[in-house]
């Protein structure tokens, strides 16, 4: 079990690189139908959110063993090693939610909050593989 990290005064997890998520751990990113354009997964699926720390949500494969990625909001999912975002100086952390204990985030944070760049997003996309494949859709 991973230990939870510091939260700020708004109860939002502060960006960190979690020592319990090793480079060979898998990160899973669910793909929504609206992330698919022109039969491709958009790089938008790998961009920062507009939350205060501009994180990108993922599920930690070491915790998530039963979540379905082809029902509800998802039509599939991709997976990547935790080493991939770290190659590009991004942080990989643990941010459990009441509805999802496996929830983690990828941040671009060095004391200041920054958006994940297009280059970093494309690097993660290119180094991802299908976890749950979407038929007739290219990943890269």
């Amino acid at each position: 079990m991973l230990n939870k990290k510091q939260r700020d005064c708004n109860d939002i997890t502060v960006p960190h690189d979690h020592e319990g998520v090793t480079n060979d751990n898998l990160l899973i990113r669910g793909i929504s139908r609206v992330h698919i354009v022109n039969h491709r997964v958009s790089s938008a699926a790998f961009k920062s959110s507009s939350d205060p720390y501009k994180g990108m949500s993922i599920d930690l494969g070491q915790i998530n063993d039963a979540r379905s990625y082809n029902t509800g909001n998802y039509v599939g999912a991709v997976k990547l090693l935790a080493a991939i975002p770290r190659d590009k100086e991004l942080l990989v952390g643990y941010d459990p939610l009441p509805s999802n204990d496996a929830h983690g985030q990828i941040w671009r944070y060095d004391g200041t909050v920054k958006n994940i760049t297009g280059g970093q997003a494309n690097y993660m996309k290119r180094n991802s593989e299908w976890h749950v494949e979407i038929i007739d859709v290219a990943l890269s």
């Binding site: 609206v34 992330h35 354009v37 022109n38 491709r40 958009s42 790089s43 938008a44 961009k47 920062s48 959110s49 507009s50 939350d51 501009k54 990108m56 949500s57």
Partner: peptide, 16 residues
Amino acid sequence: PYFVPVAGGALQAEWH
């Protein structure tokens, strides 16, 4: 371009 939503309320326009 195509339009794609980004988590948190952001938006991406893209030309392929």
